[in-house]
C-alpha cells in the first residue's frame, strides 16, 4: 500500500518538475503570439523563423563551445583538488573547501562587477578565454562537492592494497580512485555544462560582441519584446536536443548506474 502511495506521489512530483518544460513545448506550436491556454491553434511558424534566424544559431554554437571548454577546465583543475582535499585530514581542508565553494555564495552579479573592471584592466574583456575562466570558477564548486561526496564511498582499503602491491600513486589513482569517483565527475560535468550553458548574469557582463551566448540573446529579446514566441520555439528546440543527448548518454554510457 505504502509503495503505491509513494508511486502516485512520485509521478505527481515528476509532473511538477517537468511542467514548465511541457508548457514550453506546447506553446512552441501555439499560433497565438502570446502565451495562451488553451492554445489558439497549431503552427510551425516559429520553428520556421528559428531556422531562418542565423543569430540564434550562432549564439547556440558559442554557448556550446563555451560550456564544453569551461567544463573541461573545471574538471581538470577540480578533480585533483577534490582528491587532495579528501586526503588532507586537517583543519586547512575546511578552509580550502570554503574557498572553492565560495562562488556558490557570492552572487554572480556582484562578482561580475568586479570581474568586468578586472578584465578590462587585463584586456580580457569580451575574450573567449575570459568567459571560459569565469564559467570554470562557477563550475568548480560543483566538481569539488560532488567528487568529494563520491570519494566518501571510495573503498580506501582497495587503494591501500594497490599501493602495497607496488602500484605508483598515479597508477593507483587511475585504476582505483578514478573509477570510484566517476559518478561524481559525470554529475558535476553535467551540472557544470548546464550552469555554463544557461548562465545569463556573468555572460551579459563580460561577453563581448563576438561571443553572445544563447541565454544572453534570449534575455535580451525577453527584456525588449516580452515573451517572444521565437524564443519559446528556440527554447523548445534546445530542450529537445538536450533531451536527446541526455537519453543517448544514458543509453550508450549508462552513467546513472554509477550513482
Amino acid at each position: 500500500m505504502w509503495k503505491h502511495v509513494n508511486r502516485v506521489l512520485s509521478w505527481l512530483i515528476l509532473l511538477f518538475m517537468l511542467a514548465p518544460i511541457i508548457i514550453i513545448f506546447l506553446n512552441s506550436f501555439n499560433s497565438s503570439r502570446f502565451f495562451s491556454f488553451p492554445p489558439d491553434g497549431f503552427t510551425l511558424e516559429w520553428y520556421r523563423r528559428f531556422l531562418e534566424n542565423n543569430e540564434y544559431r550562432k549564439a547556440i554554437g558559442i554557448s556550446t563551445e563555451l560550456a564544453f571548454s569551461a567544463v573541461i577546465l573545471a574538471l581538470s583543475v577540480g578533480i585533483p583538488s577534490a582528491y587532495a582535499l579528501f586526503k588532507w585530514d586537517s583543519s586547512k581542508r575546511s578552509i580550502l573547501q570554503a574557498v572553492f565553494l565560495s562562488p556558490l555564495m557570492l552572487p554572480g552579479i556582484v562578482w561580475a562587477i568586479g570581474l568586468i573592471q578586472y578584465y578590462s584592466m587585463m584586456g580580457l574583456l569580451g575574450s573567449f578565454i575570459g568567459l571560459v575562466c569565469a564559467h570554470a570558477i562557477i563550475i568548480i564548486p560543483y566538481v569539488i562537492r560532488l567528487v568529494t561526496a563520491s570519494l566518501c564511498y571510495l573503498d580506501e582499503d582497495t587503494e591501500h592494497a594497490a599501493r602495497t602491491l607496488g602500484a605508483t600513486p598515479v597508477k593507483t589513482f587511475f585504476s582505483v580512485t578514478l573509477p570510484a569517483i566517476k559518478p561524481g565527475i559525470i554529475i558535476s560535468g553535467i551540472f557544470g555544462f548546464m550552469i555554463s550553458f544557461t548562465d545569463v548574469v556573468i555572460a551579459t557582463f563580460i561577453a563581448g560582441s563576438k561571443y553572445i551566448t544563447y541565454p544572453v540573446r534570449m534575455y535580451v529579446e525577453l527584456r525588449t519584446e516580452g515573451l517572444d514566441p521565437l524564443a519559446v520555439a528556440v527554447s523548445a528546440a534546445i530542450m529537445f536536443v538536450i533531451i536527446i543527448i541526455a537519453l543517448l548518454a544514458e543509453k550508450s554510457l549508462s552513467w546513472s548506474k554509477y550513482l
Partner: peptide
C-alpha cells in the same frame, strides 16, 4: 552588434573609458 540593456552598456563604456572597445 553588442546587444543588451542600457545598464550593461553604461557599465562597459565607463569601465573601458581609457581604452574603449
Amino acid at each position: 552588434l553588442l546587444l543588451g540593456g542600457t545598464g550593461d552598456r553604461m557599465a562597459k563604456i565607463y569601465v573601458e573609458r581609457n581604452n574603449p572597445t
